[in-house]
Design a protein around this nucleic acid. Structure first.
Length: 283
DNA sequence: GCTTGCGCCTGAATGC
DNA sequence: TGCATTCAGGCGCAAG
């Protein structure tokens, strides 16, 4: 599933292979993939046709492509989305949802097995689409404000992992990287945010940034000409995971078996020794 | 206003 | 063997 580093790899691919091209033709095969474009699939296609892509931007796990009329094509990959740049002659993927023909003879294809992802056109959205204005900057973004993050975190009345997953506080962190960052910071996911000391928040920020940077470093190699993949199908980062998906395996730091707990209809992985459950737990 | 939990969706994995 | 159930996940939105 694409998290921030994977999405950044896609953005780099779009920057290289789509920016500067004109969109000549748009076909929507699955209306659900443009459900957040409230004016409907036909209007979606019409508002893109003839426009030239001028940049490729990202905030958290959202991508957007500013267009030459100051609107923007906004995309989210959801769980299984891919944005592929392929020659028009390439056979279509089984889960092809939207096809956009580019002026250089290639196509930008949105494929999505589970249709959790989607595309929309945001009017005047070139700078920052209104639809994603509520998404906070990610911890690697130069505009990320550490002091604002600290105080916002302390104002919350929730568990630390819930807060990490809340994309309005800071973005780009999903279930996997939340668990990895908490392990690095030696913090338990159920720790109430208002009890965090400054040093602990600092450790958390270091953990989050290290995880994202490590994943970014490994993900940057996974695409080549005309193929902008996202799915992490090679599982390149999996080898670097310390806790996620490693239930009952020994902790890389202390050897204690990793524990798996149910959490918000999914799982949380912790080392019971490095990340002891707080007396006052909240999740 | 803030926090919580559901529903969306498909296919792989598991259970009977 | 084959069918049914469970699980995974991000995010918007309704409910609390």
């Amino acid at each position: 599933m694409p998290e921030l580093p994977e999405v950044e790899v896609v953005r780099q691919g779009l920057d290289r292979f789509v920016v500067g091209r004109r969109i000549d033709r748009v076909e929507v095969y699955e209306p659900r993939s443009v459900r957040r474009h409230v004016a409907g699939p036909a209007e979606f296609a019409a508002s893109l046709t003839g426009r030239t892509v001028t940049a490729a931007r990202r905030r958290g796990k959202y991508l957007w492509l500013p267009l030459d009329d100051e609107d923007a094509l906004v995309g989210h990959l959801g769980m299984s989305g891919q944005l592929l740049v392929q020659p028009a002659s390439a056979p279509p993927d089984r889960h092809l949802r939207v096809r956009m023909s580019l002026s250089d003879g290639n196509e930008l294809r949105f494929c999505d097995q589970r249709t959790f992802g989607g595309l929309l056109v945001s009017p005047h959205g070139a700078l920052l689409p209104a639809e994603i204005a509520h998404i906070g900057p990610d911890p690697l973004d130069p505009v990320f404000d550490e002091d604002a993050f600290r105080s916002a975190l302390r104002r919350r009345r929730t568990g630390i992992k819930r807060a990490l997953l809340d994309q309005s506080l800071t973005s780009g962190i999903g279930n996997i990287y939340a668990d990895e960052a908490l392990w690095r910071a030696r913090l338990h996911y159920a720790r109430p945010t208002e009890t965090l000391r400054r040093g602990e928040v600092d450790r958390l920020l270091v953990g989050v940034r290290d995880v994202l940077r490590d994943a970014l470093g490994e993900g940057g190699t996974s695409f080549d000409a005309l193929y902008v993949n996202v799915n992490g199908e090679s599982g390149y980062f999996e080898r670097s995971l310390h806790v996620y998906g490693r239930g009952d395996e020994p902790c890389d730091r202390c050897g204690t078996p990793i524990r798996r707990d149910p959490f918000m209809n999914r799982s949380s992985y912790t080392c019971p020794r490095c990340q002891p459950r707080p007396r006052r737990a909240r999740w």
